[in-house]
Amino acid sequence: MLDDRARMEAAKKEKVEQILAEFQLQEEDLKKVMRRMQKEMDRGLRLETHEEASVKMLPTYVRSTPEGSEVGDFLSLDLGGTNFRVMLVKVGEGEEGQWSVKTKHQMYSIPEDAMTGTAEMLFDYISECISDFLDKHQMKHKKLPLGFTFSFPVRHEDIDKGILLNWTKGFKASGAEGNNVVGLLRDAIKRRGDFEMDVVAMVNDTVATMISCYYEDHQCEVGMIVGTGCNACYMEEMQNVELVEGDEGRMCVNTEWGAFGDSGELDEFLLEYDRLVDESSANPGQQLYEKLIGGKYMGELVRLVLLRLVDENLLFHGEASEQLRTRGAFETRFVSQVESDTGDRKQIYNILSTLGLRPSTTDCDIVRRACESVSTRAAHMCSAGLAGVINRMRESRSEDVMRITVGVDGSVYKLHPSFKERFHASVRRLTPSCEITFIESEEGSGRGAALVSAVACKKACMLGQ
């Protein structure tokens, strides 16, 4: 009897593995994704193909990295998701002549009506938060230079001027797309009239992360975010950046690689679950690469896999709870928690219980395998993109072996128990001629924006502006 049951459990697990095998990517698959990513990057950089390229390769006008001589107080704003952060950054000489960066910050959550109302409502709310922060720190009387981390696709015309191309991540505030974001912020500050600010720089969160990590390690020339969304930036040779005049030196390019796949480059790798996630998203047909990796989508992918296993009578005796059938019910943090389970399955059992399920031991094991399959594919897909960037940098610099540091931020990278190990191992397999160091950014977005502002202020002083 026991043997029969054991055989049935083994057969069930084997069927589960057959279904989950769809998520496995072979090294040849990853090399294919990497080569296609490089081709799209090239198209994004070139003037004649930029418009139709899915990977936009947006110039950021960040050319210099901090040298350690900029000092002063800077205000930093960070808008990239449902939370908005205001930070005071003091850049100065530390002990023994070292450079020191001290920060104080406060988080504000953005109400739904500000995210989806008008641009005026959104930026009025942001300036209200700045006003509140300055009151708390008794700094209303000071006109501070301000660095703005704005983590949406922007076409820069200068370091302090950028046109919002399109909202992502659930934002829909009308009247912002096609307009200068810094102008919208300046107008809102003017409307309030109770404080003055000098907006000197606007950067993407990947750029802010790279600059913040450069402060720790001067070989950091790539910034990457794996959180709600997924994106990367890197220092490109100016001669390859056709959208900006000049051939000397390097400029940081914001790849906006989340949109890779929007022209069909990933079609052969998309599964039924991916198509369902895409169809029910706020932007169907867009940001397809990001939807395979980002935390906004990972939990939902797992939920759809679990429903398939229920329908195949391989999980929960073929019956799903009402909660499990509800879109968004299986949160991405559950994926991390399930994979963090120590082996007694308590954590998995508790999560499934909150979803109205009474799982068996085998159910718990199957749910864990589903989570591992989805998150491992995410790590491997992400590795193909980064390997594409790094191999490109090595080739354009004609280096036999390139040493490089990548600064990384984002909740999936930082909080998932195995993502970074799987990701690092896969990147290294795909970049055999590179020695890569990964560092995690601390308060990256805010500190990085302030350091970019410090560079901009120093330049302005040198130019006598």
Rank of each mutant, 00 (worst) to 15 (best):
S321K: 15
N204Y: 15
L451T: 04
R308K: 04
L314P: 06
K172M: 03
F334W: 14
G170D: 05
H105E: 10
E339Y: 07
F23L: 10
A201P: 08
D311P: 13
F74H: 09
G178C: 01
R186Y: 00
Q98N: 12
W99D: 13
T332L: 01
P284E: 14
A6D: 08
L288F: 09
G464D: 10
F171S: 02
V427R: 02
N180W: 02
V226T: 05
C364I: 15
Q38C: 12
K420F: 05
G97D: 12
K39Y: 05
R327I: 12
P59G: 03
T118Q: 07
E300H: 05
I366N: 07
K140V: 04
G117T: 13
E70R: 07
S383V: 05
V55L: 08
E248N: 04
Q337I: 08
T437A: 13
T103N: 08
R333K: 14
D217K: 15
C461Q: 08
S131I: 06
Q98M: 09
L276I: 02
D217S: 15
G410D: 00
R155Y: 07
E9M: 14
L75E: 06
A379W: 04
V86E: 01
L386M: 05
H317P: 07
S64R: 14
F438N: 03
S336P: 04
I293N: 02
L30W: 09
D400Y: 11
Y61P: 05
R85G: 03
V277S: 07
G44R: 04
Q347P: 14
G249S: 13
K459L: 11
G183M: 00
L88S: 05
H141R: 05
G299K: 09
S398H: 09
A11T: 08
F423L: 12
M87F: 14
P145G: 15
G407M: 05
N231D: 07
D158A: 14
L463Q: 10
D78W: 03
A176W: 00
I436Y: 10
E93M: 12
V401T: 12
D262H: 08
V244F: 07
D311I: 15
E265G: 11
D135W: 09
F171N: 02
E17K: 05
D73Q: 15
E331C: 05
I351H: 07
G249D: 08
R428K: 15
K140E: 14
L47T: 12
Q26Y: 11
S280H: 06
V207K: 03
V374K: 12
D160P: 10
V305H: 15
R46T: 14
V91A: 10
D278Y: 03
S151H: 02
Q337V: 15
R155F: 05
V406T: 07
V302G: 08
A53S: 06
E96D: 11
M37E: 00
S281W: 03
K13D: 07
L271A: 09
M402G: 13
E17L: 14
E216I: 15
Q347T: 08
S418D: 11
Q347E: 11
N283L: 05
A320S: 09
E96T: 12
K161S: 01
T168Y: 02
T376K: 08
S281C: 09
L165V: 07
M107P: 14
G285K: 07
E440S: 12
I126V: 11
E14H: 12
H380S: 09
M41A: 07
E256M: 02
S151I: 01
G285P: 04
D341H: 12
K143R: 08
R392Y: 11
E95W: 08
S281N: 13
R43K: 05
F123P: 00
E435C: 11
T209R: 04
K31S: 11
E40G: 15
Q26H: 13
T326K: 13
G223R: 01
E51A: 12
G448I: 01
V406Q: 04
R447M: 15
V241F: 00
M121N: 08
K414L: 15
A6G: 12
V207W: 07
E17A: 12
K142V: 07
I211M: 14
D198W: 09
E319V: 09
V253M: 14
D311G: 14
L357S: 06
L45W: 03
E290P: 00
K31N: 08
L77H: 01
E421D: 08
D341Q: 12
R333E: 10
G295V: 01
K56Q: 14
N254W: 03
F330K: 09
G258R: 00
K172S: 10
F419L: 07
A454I: 12
R368P: 00
G328L: 11
F330V: 09
P359S: 10
F171M: 02
E22D: 10
T405K: 14
V406H: 03
V200L: 08
Y289V: 06
M87G: 06
I126G: 01
G448N: 00
Y297F: 04
G193W: 05
W257N: 02
K459F: 06
A379R: 02
K172G: 03
T49A: 07
D187Y: 02
N83L: 03
E248P: 08
T206H: 00
L355Q: 13
E372A: 09
I439P: 02
R192K: 06
L144S: 11
S69P: 12
D344C: 06
V310H: 15
I225R: 01
N180Y: 00
Y234D: 02
N83I: 04
C129A: 10
L164S: 04
G175E: 02
S411P: 07
T362C: 11
Q287E: 04
M57T: 07
M197I: 13
A114D: 10
G80M: 00
D73Y: 15
K458N: 10
K136G: 05
D198C: 04
K190Y: 14
R303Q: 06
G388S: 07
F316V: 13
V91D: 02
M251T: 00
S383C: 07
G410N: 01
I110F: 05
W99L: 15
R325E: 11
V455P: 12
A6S: 05
E52A: 08
A387P: 01
G81S: 02
R377K: 08
L164W: 00
I163E: 01
R5F: 10
S69L: 08
N180R: 02
L306H: 00
E17W: 13
G175Q: 03
A379Y: 00
S418V: 10
A188E: 00
M37K: 04
D365M: 12
N204F: 00
L430D: 06
R191M: 02
N391C: 08
E272Q: 02
V253L: 09
F23Q: 07
S100A: 06
C129E: 00
D3Q: 12
L146E: 03
A370W: 04
L357D: 07
A173L: 02
S151Q: 02
G80K: 05
K346D: 07
R63W: 12
C129K: 08
D341P: 11
V305F: 14
L146V: 03
G72E: 03
Y273R: 04
V389S: 03
P59L: 03
D341W: 06
T49P: 03
L243S: 13
R250V: 08
